[in-house]
Simulated scan of single mutants.
Amino acid sequence: MSFEFKRMLMVKEQLQGRDVKDKRVLDAFLNVPRELFVLEEYKDRAYDDSPLPIGYGQTISQPYMVAKMTELLDLNEDDILLEIGTGSGYQAAIASRLCKHVYTVEIIPELVDFAKSNLKKAGIKNVTVILGDGSVGLKDYAPYDKIIITAATESVPEELFEQLKVGGYLVVPEGDRFTQWLKRYIKLEEGKIVSEDYSACVFVPLRGKKGFK
C-alpha cells in the first residue's frame, strides 16, 4: 500500500470519519507527507491512528489530534502562528498550508535539527524553527494572531496570553501530567480571556521555565 493511498485513507477514516469537517484542514493533510516527519523505523506506521515516538521522550501526535487542534485555530491566510513545541515539525507543516507564517519553538536541540530537516524535505519555506524555551513564548515576533501549545500544561503561562493579539485564539491541552482537556482560549478586548472546552487528551508535559516541574 503506497503512502499516498494510506494518506487518503487516513483523511477519510481518521479525520472525516470523526468530526473534522474543515476542507482546508483536510486538504492540508492530503498535501503534507506525514512519512517525512517520523523516524525511519516508523515510516510504515506513519499513518497509524496513534502518536509515534520521535526520540528524547517526545512524540509526533496522533493525526486526528493534530487535525482537531488545527481546526480549532481557525487559521486565515494572513495569520502569523506561534507554536510551542516543534517536535518533528509535522504540526507546523500542516499549519503552514493554512497561514502566512509559523514561528515554532523547540527546547530540545536535536529535535530542532530533525524538524528543520523534515520541513526542508517537504519543501516548506514559511516555517521558522527556533531553539528556545517556548514556555515563555517568543517575544521577537509578537503579537501573534494564533498560538498553539503542543505539550501538556497545568495552566497557560501568562506570557503567552500577553503575546496573543486581541481576537486571537490559543489552543492547548491543559491538565495534569497524565490526562488533559483540549481547550481553546479567546482573547477579548481589555485583556479578558474566555475559554472553551472540547475533549480529553494525553500529551507529553511542557518543558521549560513555565512547564511542569
Rank of each mutant, 00 (worst) to 15 (best):
F3T: 11
K6M: 15
M10G: 12
M10K: 12
E13V: 13
Q16N: 10
G17H: 11
G17M: 10
D19V: 03
V20P: 03
K23P: 11
R24S: 13
V25W: 08
V25S: 08
V25N: 10
L26P: 08
L26I: 11
A28S: 14
L30N: 05
N31M: 13
E35L: 08
E35T: 06
L36A: 00
L36N: 00
F37Q: 02
F37T: 00
L39T: 06
E40F: 05
E40H: 09
E41K: 15
Y42Q: 06
R45A: 02
A46H: 01
D48L: 09
D49Q: 04
S50T: 12
L52S: 09
P53A: 11
I54F: 12
I54D: 10
G57P: 01
Q58I: 06
Q58V: 04
T59G: 02
I60W: 11
S61W: 06
Y64A: 09
Y64L: 11
V66P: 03
A67Q: 02
E71S: 13
L75R: 03
N76F: 11
D78W: 05
D79L: 03
D79V: 02
I80C: 01
I80A: 04
L82Q: 01
I84R: 07
G87P: 06
Q91L: 09
A92S: 15
S96F: 05
R97F: 00
V102I: 12
P109F: 03
P109W: 02
V112Q: 05
D113N: 00
F114K: 11
S117N: 12
L119S: 05
L119D: 03
K121F: 00
G123D: 01
T128L: 03
V129G: 01
V129W: 01
I130D: 11
G132Q: 09
D133S: 13
G134Q: 11
L138Q: 11
D140W: 07
D140Y: 10
Y141W: 07
A142R: 09
Y144P: 05
D145H: 15
D145M: 08
I147V: 15
I148D: 06
T150D: 08
T153Y: 06
V156N: 07
E159A: 14
E159F: 07
L160K: 09
L160A: 09
Q163F: 10
L164G: 03
L164V: 04
L170V: 10
L170W: 06
V171W: 02
P173Y: 13
P173M: 13
E174Q: 15
D176L: 10
R177I: 11
F178E: 14
T179V: 15
Q180F: 04
W181P: 01
L182R: 02
K183P: 01
I186W: 00
I186P: 00
K187H: 07
E189H: 10
G191F: 07
V194G: 06
A200P: 08
V202S: 14
G208N: 08
K209R: 11
G211I: 10
G211C: 08
F212G: 03
F212N: 04
